[in-house]
Design a protein around this nucleic acid. Structure first.
Lengths: 224, 224
DNA sequence: ATCTTTCCCACCTAGGTGTGAACC
DNA sequence: ATGGTTCACACCTAGGTGGGAAAG
């Protein structure tokens, strides 16, 4: 008999809900996307996320604040990615176009936020950041990263689940949240140079390319 | 009624066993200290670990390999620190001496290894490193770090617990392991300069002080 | 040919060290 | 006076960026 654990409980119970954007059993729990304006800026251009063999972080990072939890109850906060359509994409003439049927989404993996399990008071103390989640295109990944297909579109989801519901298999109280502005297309190299520009301008780790870009512009100028 | 979770289950069930060096219900599970020779070298001089308000990592790091787990069962691997005696220490004339009665050990906190919960096959794949555990002397710490008293001696312990035992409160199958050579005294500043030398020579993060020390020796030489 | 993926690299951020003086 | 703690700091390790060439 398969061992029941938090992770495969969620896989079993939520698998059939994959395409539902939100399911909420406890309407008092509320999530707010902290950096919504940043996501809106990217989303206007169709957000791209790099995936690599060794795993790549997301930028923008998903940051949410949470309210309505019971202060002393312990919760798991978990993220996963679901395909939003059955289409493979390509970028052609500065446009994202459908290009055939989607490859199958084999691995419904979950990223358990490293603060889990923690009391409601702890989760509500300050915004919850998912900056450490990693995306990969390696189907044989052994490091628990989120496995995605390149050139496919995904919707991140956040699950908030009481720790003792995971323990007792009382499936009545769980919550799934989605923010449509965080939808993205997985890529192995950036397609839209507007997205590249937004990444360089906003991701502190890419700061080195801000100067480089200015330098190159100045270089071009010399030849005019 | 208090909420039952992995952490307070362990606190409740193991509290009275605090001074037992090892308790093992499943004798097939075996732990090996990977970097034993490093620990032996420090232990000969009485190991010291810095504790700070913001939290300090341990050096040497505790690294163990594990065998005898069920491959498909999921486990939590957890570390805590237990006082080894009822004494406060001081370092006088290059010697550690008892100096009065110990301060009470208020916080029996647990460090849950971030790979938890994971299948036995995953834990046995490669050595388990506790390099991210942090020690603090801040009694009001909100970051889940291990709270210790300065100038007190501690013994790290490792717990290996089946995930579904945590869930079902079946307290029959758990294991506690201790390696006496990892015992240490918590300090806010190094007392024994031999320990300082060992830290600088072996901790990559302190490499900057190797050259500095050589430079100072050369400087002294000039004056002879 | 065209499209996609992989690899190494210079350039960054993030944060782990003991020091030595100040502080208590 | 003595013993213990804290803080800013220079010096490191670790690892997150997109670029650009090469490979598939």
């Amino acid at each position: 008999p398969p061992v029941q654990t938090p992770v495969n409980y969620i896989q079993a119970s939520l698998g059939t809900l994959s395409y539902l954007p939100t399911f909420q059993s406890d309407t008092s729990v509320k999530l707010t996307l902290e950096n919504k304006s940043m996501w809106d800026t990217f989303n206007k251009q169709t957000t791209e996320m790099i995936i690599t063999k060794t795993g790549r972080r997301m930028f923008p990072v998903i940051k949410v604040s949470i309210s309505g939890l019971d202060k002393s109850t312990r919760y798991f906060v978990i993220m996963d990615m679901v395909p939003v359509d059955d289409v493979r994409y390509k970028f052609h003439n500065s446009e994202w176009l459908a290009s055939g049927k989607a490859d199958p989404h084999f691995h419904g993996r979950f990223y358990i936020h490293p603060d889990s399990p923690a009391a409601g008071s702890q989760w509500m103390r300050q915004p919850i950041s998912f900056h450490k989640i990693k995306l990969t295109n390696n189907n044989f990944d052994q490091n628990g990263q989120i496995i995605l297909n390149s050139m496919h579109k995904y919707q991140p989801r956040i699950h908030v689940i009481r720790a003792d519901d995971l323990a007792s298999f009382n499936y009545t109280a769980f919550n799934i949240f989605t923010f449509p502005e965080t939808m993205f297309i997985a890529v192995t190299a950036y397609q839209n140079e507007q997205i590249t520009k937004l990444k360089i301008d906003n991701n502190p780790f890419a700061k080195g390319f801000r100067d480089l870009r200015d330098y190159k512009k100045a270089e071009e100028h010399v030849w005019i």
